[in-house]
Design a protein around this nucleic acid. Structure first.
Lengths: 183, 183
DNA sequence: TGTAGCATGTAACACGTTACATGATTAC
DNA sequence: GTAATCATGTAACGTGTTACATGCTACA
């Protein structure tokens, strides 16, 4: 059967520096959400499994100023091996799911104004996402503290390019549908 | 909880003309696969449910030259209503899942050559997908037999734009990583 | 004769989401 | 004081995939 990939974003983030499950979830939300998602229901059990398998370890010194009430994990050598192995293996098939396109395809069965509304809504969402990426890029560019700085920019660039493509399509399609409106 | 959307591509396709579950699956594969997927395990049970709820009906005349061994369904007025209702409702959140970007983000933990290989593979896949869409567009353009002809072209255009964005990103990223190769 | 595709279906599975529960801390 | 956020977790659920079973047809 298909294997869950939840462990890899966890290992990858812990390879940068130690953090808690909560931190991991937040980072995945802000950095990856346009191409990857994980929920607490996956992350916390996975942290337990990874600890048992020795790929990550619990950091015990809860005395640190940052560590109040937090369960902080760090990656082990075994975990870094897993990460390296994964990077060399083929990727799972890319998956995209866009209900909007289904609706555009079947638009003839409903009101034109409804579809136009849906596209406008979609457009707004994508514009906001793009704005967030642009902001993130701006914040990141001057900072050289991460050695994977350039790789992050590459990932950002992917998001920017696709969002721009989406927006272009929205504008074209809205314009096209509006020109058909009077019929 | 989240509702399955399987019924809508089925209703939409049956609104064009009657067909079997097998036909539906094939059409979803060739026309929608770049933004939507369904498996037999969803389609066949859903056809049964839709028949029970009266949104579709079985066509009985298996005597037609095309009907050997086929279970052909057609949409009912009630089914068309469901379709119309759905078109007016808000879309579910768009979802994208791209393991490749995760690997690019964490590329520092592995070999550069591995990542380059993965991107090259991804690029090839997207190029083939784009070629298929272009071919589909060519086949479709002269035909005016469908009244949703222009809507199909809009959906195709979405795929073409995003695939071109993907390819552009692949080329940029490969070029960038190769320039870093000697380090 | 056998393999490939057509065609319909189902059972098992696991993946991921949602909803809930709990308690601590921060801020107004 | 109370609302929001931090923080950890789990149970239940539904969706969608995979694997399997079956039989028929085309064709080489």
């Amino acid at each position: 059967m298909k294997k869950s990939k939840t462990k890899y974003p966890i290992l990858g983030l812990l390879a940068e520096h130690p953090m808690s499950g909560y931190d991991i979830k937040k980072l995945i939300d802000v950095r990856f959400s346009f191409f990857w998602n994980e929920s607490y229901g996956q992350i916390y059990p996975e942290l337990k499994r990874l600890t048992e398998s020795g790929e990550i370890e619990l950091i015990e010194d809860a005395a640190t100023p940052e560590g109040r009430g937090k369960t902080v994990y760090c990656i082990t050598e075994s975990g870094r091996d897993s990460l390296r192995d994964w990077l060399a293996q083929p990727c799972e098939k890319a998956s995209v799911r866009l209900e909007l396109l289904l609706k555009v395809y079947f638009a003839q069965n409903g009101n034109l104004s409804d579809i136009l509304c849906q596209i406008a809504l979609f457009r707004e969402e994508q514009e906001q996402q793009l704005a967030m990426l642009n902001l993130f890029e701006k914040d990141l560019t001057p900072i050289r503290q991460y050695d994977n700085h350039e790789d992050i920019l590459r990932v950002l660039s992917f998001g920017q390019k696709t969002y721009r493509a989406y927006l272009e399509w929205c504008d074209e399609t809205i314009h096209y549908l509006e020109s058909r409106q009077p019929s």
